[in-house]
């Protein structure tokens, strides 16, 4: 279980991205974080694996305080938390294989991997991960030769290499053609059904309705809603997104 307690983040320039946010995530949930751009979704996700250092508050995962972990222990914790990014964050010039293998860097022998040497077992694992997202045939292409949807699937394969218990997905479909949204989210849903907890930030409400087991909404860094997607009625919607907001649907597939 992941417990987020009184989390606040103030950037050095004074921006308060998160204000006293608290909620729990049960194992096996598909938690979706919604909110306008700049509402603190990315900051929240990055505080969980401490890519961003929270200013105040605690994050406790299976009784371990992530916020208090020294660097070595933090790396140990991060191995179990996969992350998928809006911009995919692949090394464009490296091969798909190398990108996927790099998800394993927290586990493997540091000396051989520094030289670029990988065991047969790890290579096998990488091919399996690529196979799960349906692009095993692209293993030896350069990452930037792939389409956006394929690149995001490489991103998921890289997270799978970590053998994660939790996946943080920061706007995983926002850079993609809306018609591809489902293809990516279905992979995450599949992983979720196999027992991996997913925390995902999304823009489109119809996707939220389709995939979320629970929803947390942020507005200006404050948690304004927590509950099931069904509870978000017109009034709640206006509260989260503001008076001028109109609901837009991702391609109704």
């Amino acid at each position: 279980m992941l417990k987020i307690q009184n989390l606040s983040k103030t950037y050095p320039n004074g921006t308060q991205a998160l204000k006293n946010v608290s909620f729990d995530v049960q194992d096996g949930e598909f938690l979706v974080v919604i909110g306008l751009s700049g509402s603190g979704k990315s900051t929240l996700l990055r505080c969980i694996n401490r890519l961003i250092e929270p200013t105040e508050g605690k994050i406790i995962w299976d009784n371990v305080d992530i916020t208090a972990a020294p660097p070595a222990e933090l790396r140990h914790i991060r191995r179990k938390i996969g992350m998928v990014f809006q911009q995919f964050n692949l090394v464009k010039r490296s091969s798909v294989m190398t990108n996927v293998l790099s998800g394993r860097l927290g586990y493997v022998n540091p000396w051989t991997s520094l030289l670029g040497i990988w065991s047969q077992e790890d290579r096998q694992r990488a091919i399996q991960a690529l196979d799960r997202v349906g692009i095993a045939d692209k293993a030896h292409s350069r990452a930037d030769a792939l389409s956006g949807g394929q690149q995001q699937r490489v991103g998921i394969a890289r997270a799978l290499m970590q053998d994660p218990k939790l996946i943080l997905a920061d706007e995983p479909v926002a850079s993609l053609d809306p018609v591809l949204s489902h293809s990516i989210l279905q992979y995450l849903e599949q992983l979720n059904k196999e027992g991996i907890t997913v925390i995902c930030s999304l823009h489109f409400l119809d996707l939220v309705h389709r995939y979320a087991t629970r929803v947390v909404a942020l507005k200006d860094g404050v948690k304004v809603f927590e509950g099931s997607a069904k509870e978000i009625d017109r009034a709640k919607f206006k509260e989260i997104y503001g008076e001028e907001a109109q609901e837009v649907r991702a391609a109704s597939l």
Partner: peptide, 20 residues
């Protein structure tokens, strides 16, 4: 981006530089 992604996997700093 890739550096951030590698940090998130729990890769040691030197490996983040080497691969990212």
């Amino acid at each position: 981006g890739p550096v951030e992604a590698l940090q998130a996997t729990g890769a040691p700093p030197l490996h983040t530089v080497r691969y990212g």
